[in-house]
Amino acid sequence: MEKQKYLDDLQDIKTIMERSSRFISLSGMSGVIAGVLALLGAYSAYQAVYENQNYLSYRRASITSESLITLLAIASGVLILSLLAGILLTRNKARKTNQKLWDSQSQRLLINLFIPLAVGGILCLILLSKGFIGLIAPLTLVFYGLALINASKYTLSEIRSLGIIEVALGLIGCQFVGYGLILWALGFGILHIIYGIVMHVKYDS
């Protein structure tokens, strides 16, 4: 009997430590949606860059100022829709688990996520303005991965390994610039879908 009380105590301690230091209402389904949107985005970006080219000969990635605007529109569309889906689904899940969407845990999570992300975003804009377009797709992966690693201390621990894989894909992309878009689709699309499903199965029941 005595033992049961202490087992309960340990369980309580663990639960409170988790709940007070980590934001655990992150929705797995929002990862899946973000992944699908990223794949659609990557496909339309591919169309915009390689349009009207012969598939049998060597292809050149041609980026005119016109297609650049299309690319930026696709990128911001994907970003905004993913964020919206993430916020809505996470809000629903937070309601279910009786956690607040906007509390000190989620604030800490977002701040730590956005510091590396903002640095990467600004760097990419600088590179864009100087014409180093090939490095942008892999660098977004690198900085997104670093942001996830940094934020993983404050949310579900799986996020950390997701971050590490994103960084690795980004570095490969920096070396093999021609595969930037494919790696981007892999990192933002496929990986989000896989991790989303895993986390949905594990936590969203």
């Binding site: 309580d12 301690i13 409170i16 007070s20 230091s21 000190s104």
Partner: peptide, 19 residues
């Protein structure tokens, strides 16, 4: 104590909601 050892500091309302 569980909450305070893993956080630098918490205010009264944080703790009240948490517990």
């Amino acid at each position: 104590m569980s909450a305070l050892v893993v956080n630098d500091s918490l205010n009264f309302n944080n703790l009240k909601e948490l517990l």
